[in-house]
């Protein structure tokens, strides 16, 4: 009886590890969705509300997940309290670096945000919209790739977890 319980614990433990590993893929998918929603909110705050950048970013942080909210609040704070010469791009870069672990994004996702921040606040509304739309479409591409990868691999990793659990249980028993 004890052996059976131990075997079940081992199988379920490894199965859980498999689920945990595969959920990492889902986190990126969700985060990219969050970023897309954040950019749409930013577009609204810039075009319709006509808010200056730091306020537009702060307003875009509302209704976001805790992680994205923290990142955006940090960015907005740095923008508001920037020293005279600090560039917007550098502020986003350092805020992103600080939140890298928090956001669970890949290098190519971060590159999109950095590229987007380069032209932020430098043109009229039309060029801001173009900049945001370009970032959204690139994020969509990454999102689709991440979603496909998640669909293809999440079952695989969960199954591998269970299989390893069964294998270890057999050896131990």
């Amino acid at each position: 009886m004890i052996r059976f319980v131990l075997a079940m614990i081992v199988i379920l433990g490894f199965g859980y590890l498999g689920i945990l590993y595969s959920s990492g893929f889902k986190a990126r998918v969700l985060m990219l969705e969050e970023l897309k929603a954040m950019l749409s909110a930013l577009e609204f705050n810039i075009t319709f509300m006509n808010l200056p950048l730091y306020e537009a970013v702060l307003a875009a942080s509302k209704n976001r997940s805790e992680r994205v909210k923290r990142f955006l609040e940090n960015t907005a704070f740095r923008m508001k309290h920037r020293t005279g010469e600090e560039e917007t791009e550098n502020i986003w870069r350092s805020a992103l670096l600080e939140s890298e672990d928090l956001l669970q994004l890949k290098k190519e996702d971060i590159e999109i945000i950095l590229e987007f921040s380069k032209n932020l606040g430098k043109g009229d509304k039309e060029s801001e919209i173009n900049n945001i739309h370009s970032a959204i479409s690139r994020i969509e591409q990454n999102h689709n790739e991440a979603l496909n990868f998640f669909r293809d691999n999440s079952k695989l990793y969960r199954s591998i977890g269970l299989a390893i659990g069964v294998f270890v249980a057999i050896i131990l028993i």
Partner: peptide
């Protein structure tokens, strides 16, 4: 240029 960016709060669109 930088001074003017600051004057526009680095958001030229808002002051267009």
């Amino acid at each position: 240029d930088k001074l003017f960016d600051n004057i526009c709060e680095n958001s030229r669109y808002a002051y267009m």
